[in-house]
Design a protein around this nucleic acid. Structure first.
Length: 588
RNA sequence: GCCUUGGUAGCUCAGUUGGAUAGAGCAACGGUUUUCUAAACCGUGGGUCAGGGGUUCGAAUCCCUUCCAGGGUACCA
């Protein structure tokens, strides 16, 4: 649409002898109740033309019709100049750009980006909150890759600390040698079970101490179990071989479990980092900060940064005893990751409860003069809530990721069988289809919502298969594929035909695909892409119902053109859904 | 208290460089299959865009303020 903008600028110059900035030309899609496809909002131009909005719009409309072959007519509604662009323009756009196999693909942009996501703790299985994180991270990585970035997906596993000691201790005390093999429990679930047991027993001890007159706070510190867990953490840090062995064994179980969940979610990583290797990092950075005068030392020896001038607080970066806090390791880890990959941008996919932490982290790195700190971005997302309220691992009010996946696939199976759609499918094909549909529904449901918004998940009602859903888009794709197969479609050059209003709308919508991708990538928002794909699917279904059967179309050119349109639509749906991590079946 | 993010139809959500009469889906009601997949399509009803004030030719969108909800708030991660 750039040619319209530049011509409009020329027109204003000629009509009013004014040089207006390009930003004064506000262009948008024409609302569907009016004639035309492109609308120029003339209000911003009025101060240059010194005429009424209507007069200005008419002047400009006349000029554009006269000077641009593509503009065949215009109408003015209040201050809106609606332009009708020739059908031939749209058809030509479709036949040249959209039919080109490279449509919707981008050349490498020479930039490297890291996406860190998932970042699980190794003391319990993944739940719905992690699912949102994983899908978001994976999808953003796919999007960035699609628009030309070289992408590194990394997973920073929180594999050490008091939480894992809790599971280990409980297993030692009450496990009776239970293993994934002899219990038939998935490894992460087995370890999670002992985490819950620890908490239960710990609470009992706290209650007992409170009975003896201790305050809640004291009781929490003094309970024998927590002391024992802390001792275990110290032994671990001291390298006690029996503790290390148990830790390796139980973490191994968890990793086996995670691998299954990751595979079912369809996510993967190029590199894993482990906190057991990184938790001592960052002390160099602290030293560097002290030398540069960015940090200061308090009398007790603790190291701080004063961010009050930036509207934040003072922040501790190293304890008085010289041990690290969370931000210490994150400073060190950020440096290490940069040294490893030298990426231009780095995206942390982490929940919004850590907004403050990342604000501080990025600010500190900037103050330390790290040139790469400019490329850091916290992709913050909202919690997933249940109708009953917040999810809490320890209280068992979580939606487990594995259970959820199983449930989704089961529901997909029931609905598909009910519709009787799987005649002629082999058993393997059926299973695969149920999986694709179930996961498609789940992924689309979680990704269509803007990341920063909280999301309400009602297990009983939330997941649908009709309307604005993954299966709706999958169905549309399958329908097109079926049509193409029956019609014996083969790719061909564009043909010259008369196009209908709906076809014109379709071309207009389809042509926006590359723009949608760049914008979704820029905004780190799979949600905008998801909503666009829904629009595309809806548009196709309207088209499909409106026109007579393509298969029976006798006009060869018309038939070919409509199949071309269908094929381009299917291509967009398929590649777009892939960026959401969703597969689209050939038939369903 | 302070910082921060949200509040749009009964429910779940779109709608950010300020633009026309605020859009979808679900749910409700009604219609469409001698025609390429009805997980579809077409239609009806449903809104003080949390409340109030301001800026503007024009505000769901920007500013101020109040209310409600989530998160954070110096040695958890």
């Amino acid at each position: 649409m750039n040619f319209i903008i530049s011509e409009a600028l020329k027109g204003i110059k000629q009509l009013y002898n004014e040089d207006v900035p390009e930003s004064a030309i506000s262009i948008q899609d024409t609302r569907k109740e009016f004639e035309g496809q492109v609308t120029i909002v003339v209000f911003p131009i009025v101060r240059f033309s010194k005429k009424s909005p209507e007069q200005t719009a008419n002047d400009l409309g006349d000029f554009l019709v006269e000077n641009l072959n593509e503009v065949v007519a215009f109408n003015v509604v209040k201050g809106f100049l609606n332009l009708s662009i020739a059908d031939s323009y749209w058809l030509n756009l479709f036949n040249t750009e959209l039919l080109d196999p490279s449509f919707g693909t981008f050349k490498p942009n020479g930039k490297k980006v890291m996406v860190e996501y998932s970042s699980p703790n190794t003391n319990k299985p993944l739940h719905l909150g992690h699912v949102r994180n994983n899908l978001l991270g994976y999808s953003v990585a796919e999007l960035l890759n699609a628009v030309g970035y070289e992408v590194f997906k990394v997973n920073l596993v929180n594999d050490r600390g008091i939480h894992i000691c809790k599971s280990m201790l409980a297993w030692q005390k009450w496990g009776n040698g239970e293993t994934p093999e002899n219990s038939f429990l998935k490894g992460d679930h087995l370890v999670g079970k002992y985490y819950v047991i620890f908490d239960k027993e710990y609470k009992k001890e706290i209650d007992a101490l409170k009975q003896e007159g201790q305050t809640e706070e004291d009781a929490k510190k003094n309970a024998p179990l927590i002391k024992e867990a802390q001792r275990m953490l110290q032994d671990w840090e001291a390298g006690d071989s029996s503790v290390i062995d148990l830790w390796k064994t139980m973490n191994g179980w968890v990793y086996d479990g995670f691998a299954v969940t990751y595979k079912n979610l369809g996510v993967d990583f190029d590199k894993y980092y482990y906190e057991s290797n990184t938790y001592l990092l960052g002390k160099d950075t602290v030293e560097e900060g002290l030398q540069k005068g960015v940090f200061f030392k308090k009398p007790d020896g603790s190291v701080w940064i004063d961010l009050t001038a930036d509207g934040l607080d003072q922040k501790l970066v190293l304890r008085a005893d010289g041990t690290s806090v969370y931000i210490t390791q994150d400073l060190g880890t950020a440096q290490m990751k940069y040294d490893d990959f030298k990426m231009d941008e780095s995206i942390y996919v982490v929940g919004n409860e850590q907004d403050y932490h990342f604000k501080v982290l990025f600010l500190i790195l900037q103050k330390l003069g790290k040139s790469w700190a400019q490329g850091l971005y916290h992709l913050s997302y909202g919690m997933v809530d249940l109708p009953s309220g917040k999810m809490k691992s320890r209280e068992g009010t979580v939606v487990d990721a594995d259970d959820l996946i199983t449930e989704m696939v089961k529901t997909a199976k029931q609905k598909t069988e009910l519709l009787g759609k799987v005649n002629g499918f082999s058993e393997d094909e059926k299973e695969n289809l149920y999986y694709q549909i179930g996961m498609g529904a789940l992924k689309y449901f979680l990704l269509k919502v803007e990341p920063k918004k909280r999301l309400l998940f009602d297990p009983a009602e939330s997941i649908d298969f009709q309307g604005n859903t993954g299966p709706f888009i999958q169905y549309t794709h399958a329908r097109i594929k079926s049509l193409m197969a029956k019609a014996g479609f083969s790719a061909s050059k564009g043909v010259d035909v008369a196009i209908s209003a709906t076809e014109l709308d379709m071309i207009l919508l389809l042509s926006k695909y590359p723009l949608e991708l760049t914008e979704a990538a820029k905004a780190h928002s799979p949600a905008t892409l998801a909503n666009y794909l829904y629009e595309v699917a809806k548009m196709f279904n309207k088209f499909y119902h409106e026109i007579p059967p393509i298969i029976k179309e006798e006009d060869e050119d018309l038939r070919q053109h409509r199949l071309n349109l269908s094929a381009v639509t299917a291509g967009i749906l398929k590649s777009g859904m892939k960026m959401l991590g969703i597969e689209v079946p050939e038939k369903m």
